[in-house]
């Protein structure tokens, strides 16, 4: 018996994967530039402006510099794991983009192309599975470095991500109770028809935001790499492009987390106050992509803005915040949401 496989469908998905992965890379590259520019502007400086107009070629220059740096693998490290670490971090950072709906659909060459690599019905669970795998990149790298500072950084990363994933998950459960679906595509469609989820879940969104900062190891939760106490934390021993991969994975994580937040709480590719069904399919598709990327850009700016405003937590404060404040608040939010659903019979 034949298995009828639509070859063009596979090709279409492959092209989509290539496009989305390269877009994630480019956005991450330019987020590094944005980080330096915003940091400079916040500190009344001008930031990099020598490589290309407005410093637009700076990320390329940085990348080239990292490639040309000497690559050092410590003598007493576990070489296989040492090389695996940054690769793992990069892989898990890129994998999450598969389930995010980047737009509604486009009509090209008489085919309807959905702008989502895989619309799986457990979309958000997949995201969480992969994101929590992401910490393995850090732990493997830090452990194999055979350096006490690296190991401290890795330990901190592990315990921090476990603590904050709890509050993250529970704040998400409240959202899932409202939407009743795990598929990201369906969530966007619901928000397109009704209101954005931020209206139903303001506290849930806030908890989610704080936990996302912690998951991405961004200031004020950047204890795993705390450069002034741990000499760079988990990537102390890394040099050259392996270091670059770690830093790059952080920016890709930021990008994907911004996309997840925009999709879950801010309507994804939905354009506010506009009925997309009145527009031609392709116009609506392109405008939707633009809308999603504007939302993502806002969140990326927020990440950077907060980093250059707030100092780092002390480690006990971090744990206290995670377990004694965010977790009870997330439980309360879940309880209130459940009660409201029961009461209004939504």
């Amino acid at each position: 018996m034949f298995l009828s496989i639509d070859l063009i469908y596979i090709l279409e998905k492959l092209i989509l994967i290539v496009i989305i992965v390269s877009i994630s890379m480019v956005v991450a590259m330019y987020t590094t530039l944005a980080e330096r520019k915003v940091a400079a502007f916040i500190q009344d400086r001008r930031g990099p402006n020598r490589a290309g107009p407005f410093g637009l070629l700076q990320p390329l220059a940085d990348g080239l510099k990292l490639f040309f740096k000497e690559e050092i693998i410590p003598m007493f490290s576990n070489k296989f794991l040492f090389v695996l670490g940054p690769g793992l971090a990069m892989l898990t950072a890129l994998m999450t983009s598969a389930v995010i709906p980047w737009g509604s659909k486009l009509e090209l060459f008489g085919r309807e192309i959905s702008l989502q690599i895989a619309d799986i019905n457990i979309g958000i669970l997949y995201v969480f599975g992969v994101v929590s795998l992401g910490v393995y990149g850090i732990i493997v790298g830090s452990w194999s470095s055979n350096n006490k500072y690296s190991l401290m950084g890795g330990l901190r990363a592990a315990s921090q991500i476990i603590s904050y994933e709890l509050a993250l998950g529970i704040s998400l459960i409240a959202l899932l109770m409202v939407t009743g679906t795990l598929s990201l595509k369906e969530m966007v469609l619901q928000q397109q028809e009704g209101y954005w989820n931020i209206v139903y879940q303001p506290l849930g969104f806030f908890l989610f935001l704080v936990c996302t900062f912690a998951e991405c190891n961004r200031t004020p939760f950047d204890l795993p790499e705390a450069e002034n106490e741990l000499i760079g934390g988990y990537h102390t021993e890394y040099s050259s492009m392996k270091l670059g991969f770690y830093l790059f994975a952080e920016y890709i994580n930021m990008f994907i987390s911004s996309a997840v937040m925009a999709t879950l709480f801010f309507g994804g590719y939905d354009i506010p106050f506009l009925d997309e069904s009145t527009l031609p399919v392709n116009v609506a598709g392109v405008l939707g992509i633009v809308a999603l990327f504007l939302k993502i850009a806002f969140f990326l700016f927020l990440f950077i803005w907060v980093r250059w405003t707030i100092p780092r937590f002390r480690y006990d404060q971090l744990m206290g915040l995670g377990w004694k404040v965010l977790l009870p608040l997330a439980l309360l939010n879940m309880f209130l949401t459940g009660a409201a659903i029961l009461f209004f019979d939504k």
């Binding site: 916040i42 500190q43 009344d44 803005w305 250059w308």
Partner: peptide, 12 residues
Amino acid sequence: LSITLKHFFRKK
């Protein structure tokens, strides 16, 4: 955050 935002738009 508002202080840093003010500095963001300040003349360099």
